[in-house]
Amino acid sequence: MYDLTGFQRDLLYVVAGLDAPHGLAIKDELEDYYEKEIHHGRLYPNLDTLIEKGLLEKSQKDRRTNEYSITRRGMREIEARTEWETQYINHAN
């Protein structure tokens, strides 16, 4: 996870949190969070990077729509990141 950009980490979390999300659902979630438009030219290349790294999988829902899901490796990366963050948050309290 250390080699991902913040945007890629956010993508990973969004895909993990949605039920079989497609590109536009992911885009909508990120636009709500970032409070600005996310262009396709930013979204899809970053999704492809996460697929290449083995963190996400892509399947075809229909002829025009792909669905994304998190892999076991992707979940392990999220869990490891959460543990790492928690040690610093707990230390601050």
Rank of each mutant, 00 (worst) to 15 (best):
E57H: 04
M75C: 08
E37N: 13
L4V: 04
I70A: 01
G41P: 10
E77V: 15
Y34K: 08
H40S: 13
N46H: 08
E57R: 03
G17V: 10
A80T: 12
P21C: 04
N90Q: 13
P21H: 01
K27T: 10
Q8H: 03
E83N: 08
M75V: 15
G41E: 07
L18V: 09
Y2K: 14
Y34A: 09
R63P: 06
K36A: 09
T65H: 11
F7R: 04
L56T: 03
G6M: 12
T86F: 13
L30D: 03
Y88Q: 05
K61S: 12
I78N: 04
R9T: 14
Y88C: 02
V15D: 03
D32G: 12
L30Q: 01
D10Q: 13
F7Q: 01
L18S: 10
G54C: 05
G54K: 02
L56G: 03
R64H: 14
T65I: 14
S69V: 15
L11S: 03
L24C: 05
E35I: 02
R64V: 15
L4W: 03
T65L: 06
F7T: 06
E31T: 05
R81H: 08
T71Q: 05
W84R: 11
D32W: 01
R64Y: 14
R63E: 09
Y13A: 06
